[in-house]
């Protein structure tokens, strides 16, 4: 009652106060969850990163030893970084290229567009599921489907792609690229917002399709493209299940599929080096943070939003 009257006399300030209590009540689950499961653990893992901790005895402060060891002596750390970056640098551009190409092929006035969209999206629906990793393991093994097809088409006997360290990582890249459905749908939504008149005007002026792509489609799609790059990059850093299932949890053969996350998992839950794993987690956080910041800075030069013009 009182609040209502106050609101009428000085609307802005007192209404603010009125909704404080309900605001915090509605927010209570989130605030509790944030403190218990996000902020608390994040700070705790920063602390643990400077300790030696095996779960059995209390954490033991060792200063920056975890980081010195990681950067100067830990070959597997550097290898995991290399594997992750090779994977990411191949997977993200290829996935986005397929996503954009297929989105453009099914954009505008093609019959059955919705059906195609659904069919191409199906693999992405299955995400990092174990079932798909199991299937992949069969497809790319020595007598798997891929080699059967190669034999049938070209008469060549292919190697066992998953047990050869030279090729094993690429089978995971193919798996990820196969699941290009999400960025494809996002591209499609973006393409549908580009006014058709732009293309009409351009073609009257004699612009080729190639030119229209570079001068109209790509610039107007830049915000969507940027979102896809950032999002897919973060996802690629987090990839875990396919590598785990296909390599039987080892990241093998000879660590060729040892993703950063897989290495972190092994350190934490196979060797119970919780302090070291926390340090690895924080290094990952910093790497992702730096990559995201850099892409935001770079985006100033190539991404322009509608309302900025």
């Amino acid at each position: 009652m009182n609040g209502v009257r106050k609101a009428q006399t000085s609307p802005a300030r007192s209404r603010f106060r009125d909704e404080d209590l309900p605001g915090y009540l509605f927010m209570a689950p989130w605030i509790l969850g944030f403190l218990l499961f996000t902020l608390g653990p994040t700070l705790a893992s920063l602390g643990l990163a400077f300790t030696k901790f095996d779960l059995l005895s209390p954490p033991q402060w060792i200063g920056v030893d975890n980081f010195t060891f990681m950067f100067t002596q830990d070959q597997r750390f550097w290898n995991a970084l290399r594997v992750t970056f090779v994977y990411l640098l191949l997977e993200v551009p290829l996935k986005l290229a397929f996503a954009l190409a297929i989105a453009m092929a099914m954009d505008k006035g093609i019959r059955g567009g919705d059906l195609y969209r659904a069919l191409f999206y199906v693999p992405s629906l299955l995400g990092g599921s174990v079932a798909i990793a199991v299937l992949w393991r069969q497809l790319f093994q020595g007598d798997g489907v891929v080699n059967q097809v190669l034999l049938w088409l070209f008469g060549v006997q292919g190697p066992s792609w998953i047990s050869n360290p030279e090729t094993s990582l690429y089978t995971l890249v193919i798996l990820a690229v196969w699941q290009f459905g999400s960025p494809m749908i996002i591209f499609l939504a973006g393409l549908r917002q580009i006014p058709a008149e732009l293309y009409e005007a351009a073609s009257i002026d004699g612009a080729t399709r190639w030119k229209q792509f570079w001068r109209i489609t790509l610039p107007l799609l830049a915000p969507v493209l940027f979102f896809n790059i950032v999002f897919q990059t973060i996802e690629a850093f987090k990839a875990f299940t396919p590598a785990f299932i296909i390599s039987g949890g080892t990241g093998g053969p000879v660590d060729s599929t040892l993703f950063y996350t897989l290495y972190l998992y092994q350190e934490a839950f196979a060797h119970f080096r919780m302090g070291y794993a926390s340090a690895l987690a924080w290094v990952l956080l910093v790497i992702i943070g730096v990559c995201t910041t850099l892409s935001f800075l770079a985006s100033k030069y190539w991404v322009f939003y509608e309302d900025e013009r």
Partner: peptide, 28 residues
């Protein structure tokens, strides 16, 4: 709802979107 600290909490919430779960994994 308009309550004090809403914008800060919203910014924090958006930051958790970016946070890889590995960072909170071990203490959890």
């Amino acid at each position: 709802l308009r309550f004090r600290g809403r914008n800060i909490l919203f910014a924090l919430m958006m930051m958790t979107l970016m946070l890889p779960y590995h960072v909170t994994l071990i203490p959890q």
